[in-house]
Amino acid sequence: MQVGIMGGTFDPIHIGHMVAAETAREAGGLDEVWFIPSAMPPLKNGEPSASGEQRLEMVYRAVDFQPYFRAMDIELERGGVSYSIDTVRELQALYPGRAFTYIIGADRLNDLGSWRRVEELAELVSFIGLERPGHLIDAASLPSFISGKLRIVQMPQLDVSSTDIRGRRAAGRSIRFLVPDKVYSFIIRNHLYET
């Protein structure tokens, strides 16, 4: 079974994440995509705005009834800083016989060479890099052990981000249709991202 891994804070998960996962699934011939909210992301400053439980619940709501998507709490259960190599090692132990592909947006792909134990990670997984608005993929600058296992995929150009969504909520602006409906109702009901 070919499994795509979508890691991130998902603070909140939004339609861009969903389109990215579906684009990667289709282009990479993946059987499933597993969404894994991080406990503490190593490459971002500050704590997520929503709790781990709230972010996981939003992911569960987003993937509900999507036959190829799953929400996984592996990094939240482990706690601490969420390093991809630790997650992949744990997934391989829990789910032998699956081949894993890391799905990475262009904004994170260019710093992939600085990830913890990335050479070891590249021995264990392949990568799908998704082009995003305003972020050019510079595959030539990546080490050969990464670029040799990287497939770059064009995705529909949706300029939506979790940062923008949180800013809209803080300013009292609508986020309807930027997040899946069940995520929208959860955010509204729990007053997430308000000032």
Rank of each mutant, 00 (worst) to 15 (best):
S162T: 01
V63Q: 05
V33E: 08
E22N: 10
M6N: 09
M18I: 15
E53L: 14
S84C: 03
R98S: 10
D11L: 10
D11G: 08
S162A: 15
S38D: 07
G172I: 11
M18P: 05
I165L: 11
E75Y: 12
R78M: 05
S126K: 14
E47S: 11
G28P: 06
V88M: 06
G134W: 09
S82A: 07
T195A: 15
L112V: 11
G129H: 09
V125Q: 02
G52C: 07
Y83T: 01
G172V: 09
G46L: 06
Q66A: 09
V88Q: 08
D73S: 14
I146C: 05
Y60N: 15
N110W: 11
R151H: 03
M58T: 13
Q66D: 11
Y83M: 07
N45C: 05
Q66C: 15
E123D: 14
G46H: 02
M40W: 08
S114M: 10
P37D: 12
R117L: 11
R61Q: 13
F145M: 05
D86H: 10
R173F: 05
R132S: 09
P48Q: 11
I165V: 07
E123N: 10
I5Q: 01
Q157Y: 00
E120C: 07
Y95E: 12
A99E: 12
F10L: 07
P96T: 11
Q154H: 14
L94N: 10
G113M: 06
V183A: 06
S38E: 04
I187Q: 06
I165M: 01
I137T: 12
I165Q: 06
N45Q: 13
E75Q: 12
T101A: 03
V88F: 05
R169Q: 13
Y60K: 15
D11N: 14
I137A: 13
H17M: 06
I13H: 00
D164E: 14
R151Y: 02
S126W: 01
E26H: 11
D107P: 03
A122R: 04
Y60P: 00
T23I: 08
P156K: 09
S126Q: 12
V3Y: 02
A24V: 03
A39M: 04
R176M: 08
Y184L: 15
M40Q: 14
